[in-house]
Design a protein around this nucleic acid. Sequence first.
DNA 1: CAATCTAAAATTGTCTACAATTTATCATAA
DNA 2: TTATGATAAATTGTAGACAATTTTAGATTG
Lengths: 231, 231
Amino acid sequence: MLLQSDLPLNPSSDDIVGSLRRAILAHRVAPGSKLVEDEVSDVFGVGRSIARTALQALAHEGLVTIIRNRGAFVADPGVREAREVFEARALLEPRTARSAAERATPAAVKLLHKHIAAEHQALQAGDLGKAVYLSGLYHMAIADLADQATIAAMISTLVARSSLIVALYWRRPQALCESHVHHALTDAIAAHDGARAEDLMKGHLVDLLANLDLREKLQIGGSLCDILRQA
Amino acid sequence: MLLQSDLPLNPSSDDIVGSLRRAILAHRVAPGSKLVEDEVSDVFGVGRSIARTALQALAHEGLVTIIRNRGAFVADPGVREAREVFEARALLEPRTARSAAERATPAAVKLLHKHIAAEHQALQAGDLGKAVYLSGLYHMAIADLADQATIAAMISTLVARSSLIVALYWRRPQALCESHVHHALTDAIAAHDGARAEDLMKGHLVDLLANLDLREKLQIGGSLCDILRQA
DNA sequence: CAATCTAAAATTGTCTACAATTTATCATAA
DNA sequence: TTATGATAAATTGTAGACAATTTTAGATTG
């Protein structure tokens, strides 16, 4: 389990949450992976209590699934959940993008450009996982601009879950992605054009969902005999 | 700390979360109250670990605030947060009410009527706290009808936080409340009139917010001398 | 009397031990 | 070989012990 080790010597559970979250969102640990408490506590050099607390926090975010007596696993969202997450984003983010556009300062716009640049760089370096992660940060940055902490927090967890969903269902291995949309969105925000920002965001979310392959992963029912037949 | 004791002998942290949540939402514990870990564990007859886990879960829901080395307190939302919570509800609930109307079955409508009846009964019994709690359940029931678990979960926590907000900022001690609106909404849902349900919900949320007294609780800045002058 | 400091009590943070449960291993039998 | 079942290993659940911190109470001083 690869973890960037820019951590204090006695990390708090929040530090561990952050580190694990980055690892999950950048797809450095596969969905469904087991997260053993002893391993986590060893890696971070803390007792099991703290590791446990961190895993429970991630479970509340929906990035980890805890099954009683079985342990913690990196979340493995199904197609149903994938659709639901984007439904929720569709309700929250377009309006939020509008507010962001109405309030954006030059400094904020500069920050958005920085996010886009970093994402672009990761893409060119071939690190798709990191690019997806950074793309999420861009959406969160917009949410922060709207100055609605409660909504921003909800968007934040939805975006995080989306990152996991993209890892599982993204159709095109290396399409040129959506950096154009992010550019256009940033322009609308810089121009304080709320209506356009709202529309762009709405379309962007539709595009994202459309680029997922949401056929059932494995329909265990009828295909089992087929699998046996092939073998 | 009054708690209905319909709990198993060895309650899980989830049981405790539920019990504490009901107590908080029905205003049986005041916002800002300290929740000492030892007391919680004694009341429920469990070790401190489980009580701790429960309090952390409630903190993730926004019903409890945990301050490091100081402990857990029943959340005490400010006016800012109050506005934000209703902003978020305004983005989520109207559309969700529309979906609910489009999908509602007769059994579901019957359930909504039951909720309204219970709420009405609590109001007549003078138990305002319970009425607010039940009113919240009504909104959650609608969210469940829409068959979007992710959105429903978000609405659920927002409604819960609203209950706390109403406890703090409700203007009229015992106005005839909004049972009429709930009735009209239920009718729209029963008639599968999605558009009307959406409108009613939107208006209902505006009304709720309008009936809050969101002047600053204590504006420590300039008014301190005024207070001293009055004394 | 108010303010400040000190010591005791209370409370939270963390670790570790032990119990309960699940998972893995391996021998046995069909 | 494949199933089945018993045993051992690994892992999680819970409680309690001790350390660190905050809160309280009392004494001291101006």
